[in-house]
Amino acid sequence: MIQYLVRRLLWAIPVLLAIMVVTFFLARAIPGGPFDFRGDKQIPETIRKNLERKYGLDLPLHQQLGRWIWDAIRFDFGPSYASRSQTVTDILKRTFPISFQLGVLALLFALCIGIPMGTIAAVKQNTIVDYGATFAAILGVSMPTMVTGPLLMWVFALILGWLPAARWGTDYTQLYLGFFPNLLSGKFWLHAILPSLTLGLAYSASIARLTRASLLQVIREDYIRTAYAKGLPGRRTVILHGLRNSLIPVATVLGPMFAGIVTGSMIVEQIFGIAGMGKYFVTSVTNRDYPMIMGAVLLYSVLLVGANLLVDVSYAWLDPRIRYD
């Protein structure tokens, strides 16, 4: 197992290096540079050249690439061109924990809603319950967060007045170990519910559908019939024997899904006014903010590699027949 982990981690290094090189060239392949325009006014030639010299963009490409990789290894991505008073590392350090907290909570919501819904739908296949759950799942997939977000905000914050309308409930500068919120704070939870639910709902639907399909297959297997034959109660059979096995496909999508939730939460973050990193993924490209693009893509890759590794390890727990040699 340890050997497997080490091997996987070592393999991650060339993968990340390749991603860095490809991103470097892709970012520069987009027409236009970071200092061409401010708003709709063109930046004068001389000023643009001055700025490019200041940020090393006048060097030959291979030198820039070498510098970028060397700096990135030391976690130094340089200043953000769009917000020159901050470095990319500052921005990621500040925003990543927030998006991570939101992502974890959203994923929890997605699982807590999706798995039971999928299970019930599978067990009661082709009944009104199944149709209802499937309908809800399709609704969840098709309703964009930019509809559910304001809708939930309107109901729970404005009409009922139970929850705050927007923003994240932690002091961004005072996180435990620079990463974790104060979990005992009521303010944190009150603020967290609406955005996490909005983000989680969208994903819970696809988890429910996957769980249902997978469980339907599993409960027709021989070992389930055996379990019933032994006289095990229905609920225990489905949950302990059936569900655990049927979660393998769910776990497989969870890895990339988590990386996607953490980095792709721009719309939810914008609706609820949360200072996460979702925004930077989009604006860094439109601003041609090369250091930010590189930092963001690298972080996403690390997250993806890490989440996939976690998923692979969890297979062994879900299905003891799986071995790593």
Binding site: W154, L158, G161, P164, A165, A166, R167, G273, A275
Partner: peptide
Amino acid sequence: CVTIVEDSTEFAMYLNNE
């Protein structure tokens, strides 16, 4: 000061006396 971009969110916060 907050930096809310969505005007519907801003309006909700205003209605909520935030």
